[in-house]
Design a protein around this nucleic acid. Structure first.
Lengths: 224, 224
DNA sequence: TTATACAAAATGATATCACATTATGAGTGG
DNA sequence: CCACTCATAATGTGATATCATTTTGTATAA
């Protein structure tokens, strides 16, 4: 097992570092679902003591990104067709709700910033940098919902992203084939302050990944 | 600061005990929002070492039940009118979604069990046991959504419950005045397999607490 | 070959300790 | 009465050690 390294700023706590490194590993699919992990193994690989690693993993297990089994093993949960459908419908429901409630708070300046993020994504796609694409896509959605100053949905959405992580990642290289860029539709809806069009575009943006992810899931049944 | 004790079974891990005891304290409102806590203070009060307490609090902060500030202090977040509204609308959106997706999986037997839980609540209300009422109410909702075998919404809903905890608790003694029992309406909608009526009843059930909580919030502005 | 038993190694959990950082409060000067 | 300084206490963090439990691998028996 090889977990990608991530940058660590000097004011970052060890526990935080372990959390972000593991989180990133889950999102980019570096830990295949079902892989058996141990606290001590991770601590050894990270060159840390078990204490901060345990705290990091407890946080991730609270977010349902990692399962803590009773037999002293940790793993990224397996995906099933039913769970995938459930997570995606939850995403649609939650993110449409969050977007609708953010809309009245959005300033023109903020829409410009979202536009810039979308341009970044176009560049990442052209450059074939899927990691950056994933990251910026999440920033795009997060920024949108965060326009609502009392917003409480983002942490929940992030938990779902974490659970979908490995699969959406696998699917990204197919999405560019699709060509349909729903972010453009989202941006026009924002500019027009059209809640109806906004949720329609967002729903398509999410469901598009859904269909593709479904295909990937069917192509790669879980190992026996 | 006095944190109520909670039962601890012998197979329960220390960290789990600390988590559940703190969680309960938040839900029953034993820790007033804004109260300043420390890891070591809690460890001392619980008679435990700081390590498992830290893990427990990290879990709770991931669920947004407790804030970890940079100035070495922990606290239960203050409630504002905006945040309350946000949390309640999120509850409506999320729980209606979860209920709709649970409905096709619900068996008659499971509906009977929900009916029994509702009867329990009536008894708790008559006996004036608000703690039991709170607990059983949550069990009612959780059981409903959990009928969906692939359900992923319950952990998210629980996070919102935790954030609303102290306020809904304060409000409970007013709700019995109201007399309207939306759980009865929920149960008939379930029996009739009527998704429309189900979400309507659920929405009212949640919003009812909403209105009452709003009043309480206005009655008790945060300390200066 | 398969099943069982058992010893050895690995693991999770948690208390303790050491260290750097931060808060606190008394004392001082304005 | 207020602002500032600074020594002391308190705190968060993380490494280490210990213990009970579980897993694992090997050897023995069927």
């Amino acid at each position: 097992m090889r977990i990608p390294e991530t940058p660590r700023s000097e004011d970052m706590t060890t526990q935080d570092y372990a959390y972000h490194r593991l989180r990133n590993a889950v999102i980019v699919g570096a830990i295949p679902p079902g892989t058996s992990l141990t606290f001590r193994g991770i601590a050894l690989e990270f060159g840390l003591s078990p204490t901060p690693v345990r705290e990091a993993i407890r946080r991730l297990s609270t977010e349902n990104a990692i399962e803590v089994l009773e037999n002293r093993r940790l793993r990224v949960p397996e995906m099933t067709a039913g769970r995938l459908d459930e997570l995606l419908e939850l995403r649609v429901s939650l993110e449409c709700h969050a977007a609708k409630r953010a809309l009245p708070h959005l300033t023109d300046l903020q829409i410009d910033e979202l536009q810039a993020l979308d341009d970044d994504m176009d560049r990442s796609l052209a450059a074939g940098d899927l990691d950056a694409l994933t990251r910026t896509n999440q920033t795009f959605h997060r920024s949108l919902y965060s326009a609502n100053p009392d917003q409480a949905a983002v942490p929940l959405v992030e938990s779902i992203w974490l659970q979908l992580g490995p699969f959406l990642r696998q699917v990204l290289h197919r999405i560019d084939q699709d060509g349909a860029d729903y972010h453009k539709a989202i941006l026009s809806a924002l500019r027009a302050r059209d809640a109806e069009a906004l949720t329609r575009a967002l729903e398509q943006d999410i469901r598009n990944g859904s269909i593709q992810a479904g295909r990937v899931l069917l192509d790669t049944p879980p190992a026996p």
